[in-house]
Design a binder for these strands. Structure first.
Length: 304
DNA sequence: GGCAGAATCCCATCTCTTCA
DNA sequence: TGAAGAGATGGGATTCTGCC
């Protein structure tokens, strides 16, 4: 995009809101150039740890390969604690920065060894906040295997794939023993994903990490009885707009708990689009494709 | 090889909670 | 009580996978 629009460091650019939120650079205002603007080139070394960065052929993203890179450790913990993963409320950016910078947390398992005194000694933290964070950490132990798998940050394993893996293997131990071929047998898992999963679990450090999490009391069992309610089995839902009685995440959970599937994008295979207030482009796409559109009330009625 | 679909990333702005 | 941090929000763009 930078090359295509010839955007240089120091340029003045025209920005517009694409969709509702996203700032999009439309073009460079060339007559504002002074001649001091510089071309951007991708750094050859990681700005956080100085290790060389690499970009595999056929991939788009440059990566730092240093496993001990502090920036990578922080990001992995951010992901681990995020709402859709282990949902550790109160463990946000600033707190993670402090925990990693002070050496209190070097990996996910260290989160579960934190004490109230350690937390309360940090900036903008006191007894109340430290207690809240600790309670949230305790609560996260019951998040269940699906969320844990997603939280680990295995490449190509998002929420959907984590769910598929749990439905297929039913336990962490069985997944740990799975071969590349076992994984390839599963619908929606291809060579890239299976390779990534096998690589992650064959790494001794990762196995040790999982062992420490288990010792800390983190549940490695599926969160809910699997497929107890299958009324929405085979049905795909997409949510758009703002719902009144629940968040979209909660609505998606209701679908999944009934054996259905919640997706982010509308396609011909979508069965229902549930439209809240101010629905976006997904609503229009659903209309064009002839997908059934439900109001929030219709959706709640359907759940009954 | 091409296409469809899924997953992920992007970030301004607001509200709420808690600290100092 | 002001300041600061966390969390919630949401659709387009991009990337990547899986399937035909």
């Amino acid at each position: 995009e930078i090359d295509r629009k010839d955007i240089r460091i120091g340029d003045t650019v025209l920005v517009q809101r694409a969709g509702d939120v996203i700032p999009e650079v439309v073009k460079v205002i060339e007559h504002k150039r002074t001649g001091t603007e510089r071309k951007f080139s991708m750094p050859a070394h990681c700005p956080a740890c100085g290790s060389p960065v690499t970009k595999p052929e056929n991939e788009a993203v440059y990566r730092c390969l240093n496993l001990q890179c502090p920036a990578k450790i922080k990001e992995s913990i951010r992901h681990f604690a995020s709402r859709r993963a282990m949902d550790i409320e109160g463990l946000g950016d600033k707190l993670i920065d402090q925990l990693v910078d002070q050496g209190l947390v070097k990996n996910f398992a260290d989160i579960y060894t934190l004490t109230k005194d350690q937390l309360a000694s940090l900036d903008r933290m006191a007894d109340k906040s430290a207690g809240n964070v600790l309670a949230s950490i305790q609560k996260s132990k019951k998040a269940g295997l699906e969320r844990l798998l997603y939280a680990l940050g295995i490449r190509h394993v998002g929420e959907h794939t984590a769910r598929i893996l749990v439905q297929h293997f039913k336990s962490l131990n069985k997944l740990l023993q799975a071969s590349r071929y076992d994984l390839l047998d599963i619908h929606e898992i291809g060579p890239e994903v299976s390779e990534s999963i096998v690589q992650f679990f064959s790494d001794e450090k990762n196995r040790l990490l999982l062992q420490r999490l288990q010792e800390a009391g983190v549940s490695c069992e599926p969160a809910a009885p699997l497929a107890a309610d299958t009324r929405l089995s085979g049905k795909t839902f997409v949510f758009t707009g703002t719902l009144k009685k629940m968040t979209r995440a909660e609505a998606e959970q209701l679908v999944v708990a009934r054996g259905g599937r919640a997706s982010g994008s509308v396609s011909k295979k979508t069965d229902f689009v549930v439209a809240g207030d101010d629905p976006g482009s997904k609503y229009e796409k659903a209309r064009k494709l002839g997908v059934t559109i439900l109001t929030e009330e219709d959706f709640l009625e359907l759940l009954k």
